[in-house]
Simulated scan of single mutants.
Amino acid sequence: MSQHVFLRGMVAIRLFSALAELTGALLMWRFQRLETAVRINGLLGLVGPLVLTTTMALGLAGLAQSRLPAARLVWIGAGVGLILWGTRR
Score class of each variant (00 low, 15 high):
20 A>M: 09
65 Q>H: 14
77 G>L: 13
74 V>W: 12
43 L>D: 12
12 A>S: 11
78 A>Q: 02
88 R>F: 06
88 R>V: 10
50 L>F: 13
17 S>K: 02
15 L>P: 03
2 S>M: 03
3 Q>P: 00
50 L>A: 15
78 A>N: 04
78 A>C: 11
19 L>C: 07
72 R>Q: 14
18 A>G: 09
33 R>P: 00
8 R>F: 09
78 A>M: 11
4 H>V: 09
32 Q>H: 06
86 G>V: 05
61 A>E: 14
89 R>T: 07
21 E>L: 12
71 A>R: 12
34 L>G: 00
6 F>M: 05
7 L>K: 03
64 A>W: 15
85 W>F: 13
84 L>E: 07
21 E>G: 05
77 G>V: 07
57 A>G: 13
12 A>C: 06
82 L>A: 09
14 R>Q: 08
56 M>G: 10
17 S>P: 00
32 Q>N: 11
55 T>N: 10
59 G>F: 14
64 A>F: 14
69 P>Y: 12
38 V>C: 02
55 T>E: 11
46 L>C: 10
35 E>T: 04
31 F>W: 03
34 L>I: 05
53 T>N: 10
76 I>Y: 04
4 H>P: 00
53 T>L: 15
24 G>M: 01
17 S>A: 13
2 S>A: 05
39 R>F: 06
33 R>F: 00
65 Q>V: 14
68 L>V: 15
7 L>P: 00
73 L>F: 10
41 N>L: 11
28 M>Y: 00
25 A>C: 03
56 M>W: 14
6 F>C: 05
38 V>A: 05
10 M>P: 01
88 R>Y: 08
66 S>L: 15
87 T>W: 04
45 G>R: 06
34 L>D: 04
34 L>M: 04
18 A>W: 06
40 I>C: 03
60 L>A: 09
36 T>N: 01
7 L>N: 03
15 L>S: 04
11 V>C: 01
75 W>K: 07
4 H>E: 11
11 V>W: 02
64 A>R: 15
57 A>W: 12
39 R>C: 05
63 L>G: 09
73 L>P: 08
38 V>Q: 06
79 G>H: 06
51 V>M: 12
60 L>Y: 12
30 R>K: 04
52 L>Y: 14
10 M>W: 02
87 T>F: 08
82 L>S: 04
55 T>Q: 13
56 M>A: 15
35 E>D: 11
25 A>E: 02
19 L>R: 01
67 R>G: 15
25 A>F: 06
23 T>P: 00
39 R>D: 08
48 G>M: 12
14 R>V: 10
80 V>Q: 02
25 A>P: 00
85 W>I: 10
12 A>D: 07
51 V>E: 10
12 A>H: 04
86 G>T: 05
53 T>R: 12
10 M>N: 02
78 A>V: 13
26 L>S: 02
29 W>T: 06
8 R>V: 07
14 R>F: 08
22 L>R: 01
58 L>Q: 13
77 G>I: 05
33 R>K: 05
55 T>M: 13
49 P>D: 10
